[in-house]
Design a protein around this nucleic acid. Structure first.
Length: 114
DNA sequence: GGTCTGACCGGCG
DNA sequence: ACGCCGGCCAGAC
């Protein structure tokens, strides 16, 4: 069985994509929150890395994912350095100086909403 | 095949 | 209060 199937290989990446896709409009979440929901709060870096792959999938609202400070840390990775902020504002999220206003209120926790 | 980095977080000095 | 460091998983060279 050691060389059976590797179906469970993409658990982490896949889980991240699923959660990010489930983020409601006008709501934001943090890398640590997702990682914690997956059970690996220490691997918040992986969540960000998963977003890198998510960039290939336009169905994944990576702009709704920010760091724990509510700052658009990944904005620099978007098409344009302002695309992330513009999109968030378009969805009703107030963004100022690359950081989400009322982040605590807009913070969407999968463990709570699900 | 081994090494390093990467859109982070939390603890410690 | 601020700064530094370690930790996790996976992909790229």
């Amino acid at each position: 069985m050691t060389k059976g199937k590797q179906e469970n290989k993409y658990t982490f990446f896949d889980d991240v994509f699923e959660v990010v896709k489930l983020i409601p409009k006008g709501r934001v979440t943090s890398y640590g929150t997702i990682a914690k929901y997956l059970g690996t709060k220490m691997s918040a870096r992986m969540v960000g890395w998963a977003m890198n792959a998510a960039h290939a999938d336009k169905k994944i609202p990576a702009h709704r994912v920010v760091n724990r400070n509510g700052m658009l840390s990944g904005k620099h990775h978007f098409e344009t350095p302002t695309a992330m902020q513009e999109r968030l504002e378009k969805e009703g999220v107030e963004v100022s100086k690359d950081h989400v206003q009322d982040f605590k209120k807009l913070l969407w926790d999968p463990a709570i909403d699900l």
